[in-house]
Amino acid sequence: MRRLFYLLIVAVLGGLFWWGLHRNPGELKSVLIGRPAPDFELPLLPPYRQAWGERFRLADHLGKTPIVLNFWASWCYPACYQEAPVLQAAWEAYRDRVLFFGVNNQDKTEAALKFIDRFGLTFPQGYDPRGKVGIDYGMYGVPETFFIDRKGKVRYRHAGAIDAATLKAKLAEVLR
């Protein structure tokens, strides 16, 4: 009886740690899931001003089309460098159905522009040197990608560099 009790303790601890070793660290539930996306207004980086105006207000686009919100910074190496071409390719394929918006987080303007140049990013990019929007979205660290559906609700948050397959699957979800 006593032996059984001790054995149970060992088994429970073992199970707990085994589970802990095998959980996916990229999967972080956001408190925002299912809630309306927080609004923000940011100045756009110079290359996008002609097409999108001086400032970008999320509320102007919420509830019209699905939105992919990507937080990045030029100092986030290598993750942001890995996902930038993936995001650009997806933007080119989906630009008529989904709005992509990049939030440049706690970065220097010149460094951000160099990054944009390097990957030829054509979706609009806002500039947030303080990282205020990141906190409003409960961001852990760059890069993070939020998927907002047609109704303006947050559907999914991806932490870390996003890959093409996940991006495609989640885009299909918000387009449904």
Binding site: Y6, I9, V10, G14, F17
Partner: peptide, 25 residues
């Protein structure tokens, strides 16, 4: 290394508790 140390921890606990339960009796 994680799983290996986990195995070692569980082994130590199992041996220790096994002996303890005998001693307690």
């Amino acid at each position: 290394v994680g799983p290996v140390f986990l195995g070692f921890l569980l082994l130590v606990l199992a041996v220790g508790f096994g002996l303890l339960s005998r001693v307690a009796g």
